[in-house]
Amino acid sequence: MLESLPSTKPQQPTNHHPFTKQSTTTKVASFELRKNDKYYAWLFLGPSLLLLGVFVFYPMLRTFYLSLFLTNNFGQPTVFVGVQNYLNLLKSAPYLASLRATVTYVVGVAVLTLVLGLLLAAMANQKLRGIGFFRTIFTATMGVSVSVSAIFWLFMFNPTTGVLNQIVMFFGGQPIAWLTKPGWAMVAVIVTSVWMHLGFTFLLFFGALQSVPKSLYDAADVGGASAWYQFWHITLPMISPTMFFVGVVTLISAFKSFGLIDLMTAGGPTDATNLLVYRIYKDAFMNGNYAQASTESIILAVIIAVITLVQFKLLAKRVTY
């Protein structure tokens, strides 16, 4: 669903046809092909349509169907309630709190990852002795799985023995209840998530920076432009496609954060980190309330679809390809 969204982008009309281009020599062959286009289209699209139909479209429709019912202990729809599930959810304070928490988390993760990733990439782009070592280090988090990083950060956040509180106490502060105070718990999961995303973001930005032609900077130097001016007017426009890509990917990936939340806070304390995806999981597979989980899934799908569309409409204009 999420991955298929980018295809909603309006396609550029193409003048050449991949098959006809090859066969302009014989008019007959060209005609045959045009007549059979439909057949070819189904032949080539068939397998993926079949797979998508079974694994994407049917579950989506089924989810929507379930969201209009109450489901019993076996997950079967029993009582038709129309849009009542939607109304209940949108009026429910815990759900709205989840929505707010998700926005905080997603925006926090996306912005911090972009800024820090770019910063690291800009630093690693300098020609210094031993910079290769740092370039490797900065990408290192790519090789760390969600469970490992969650456990690793859990140790650091531990209120009594964790290294972060040791540092806080060293400077005379009171130990912070990282994962048990609602505000701090959100900080903790954002920090961990940013840390996890950083390696991949860094790598993409670094690649983009490396591919900016040096001649542009040389020309700017000759023109007497400051480093700051060069960054804004050469670097940023040149890497804007990458920024756009990283932005979309990070945002969607943040929306889908599950393992991290499950391992670090399980949605707590007081639902402070009970993000939409995690709430769906809990409602379906812990509480057995499939109707409510389906309703939440549909709402989340709509939210992500809208955000992605807005991103494409707004940002696509500003991106220099």
Binding site: P94, G268, P269, T270
Partner: peptide, 19 residues
Amino acid sequence: DGVIAARALIENAMQQIYA
């Protein structure tokens, strides 16, 4: 049936009470 959901709500209440 479904006491798990009640537990989650009570646990939230307890967290709030501690806060």
